[in-house]
Amino acid sequence: METRHYIVVSIDGDYANLKRIDIDSDDLMLVARALLPEDIKEGSKLKYEMLEYTIE
């Protein structure tokens, strides 16, 4: 499974908008905050690997 890198663009209630930063893309992905580390904030960099998000 490939590793992906994201940045938290915005947080809106129970969801966060993530932007992939390891490829050239302007698309945002809406992810439930329950799937993300508890202490994220806007600007946090995340790594997605093995079906888990971790803060870098």
Rank of each mutant, 00 (worst) to 15 (best):
S44V: 09
D22F: 00
D27T: 14
L28M: 11
D26I: 06
G13E: 12
I23F: 06
I40E: 04
A34M: 09
D14W: 10
M29Q: 11
A16T: 04
D39N: 13
D39K: 12
D12N: 13
K19S: 08
A34I: 14
D27L: 15
R20S: 02
V8Q: 05
D22K: 01
S10I: 02
L18W: 08
D39H: 09
R20L: 03
S10G: 11
L36R: 03
G13M: 08
L18P: 04
E42N: 04
D27E: 15
S25W: 13
K45E: 09
G43Q: 09
V31F: 10
L28N: 08
I11S: 08
A16D: 11
K41F: 06
L36N: 05
Y6M: 01
K41S: 14
L35V: 00
A16E: 10
L30H: 03
M29Y: 14
K19A: 05
D26M: 10
D14N: 15
D22C: 01
A32S: 14
K19Q: 14
I40M: 03
R33E: 07
A32I: 03
A16W: 05
K45N: 04
L18H: 09
L35S: 07
K45C: 00
V31G: 05
D26R: 10
K47I: 09
E38P: 12
E42W: 01
Y6R: 04
Y48E: 04
I11Q: 08
D27Y: 15
A32F: 12
V9Q: 14
A34G: 13
D24Y: 13
K47C: 06
I21H: 07
R33S: 10
D27F: 15
V8C: 06
I21T: 15
E42Y: 02
Y15N: 11
D14V: 08
I40W: 03
D24H: 14
K41E: 15
I7M: 02
S44C: 03
L46C: 04
Y48R: 00
A34E: 07
D12V: 03
K41G: 12
N17F: 08
D26C: 05
D12L: 07
I21Y: 06
V31C: 06
A32E: 10
I11R: 03
L28K: 13
V9R: 13
G43S: 06
K47G: 00
Y6L: 01
E38S: 14
D14M: 11
I21P: 15
S10M: 07
A34P: 05
L30E: 07
D27Q: 15
G13A: 09
L18E: 06
R20M: 05
S44G: 04
K47D: 01
L18F: 07
G43Y: 06
A16P: 08
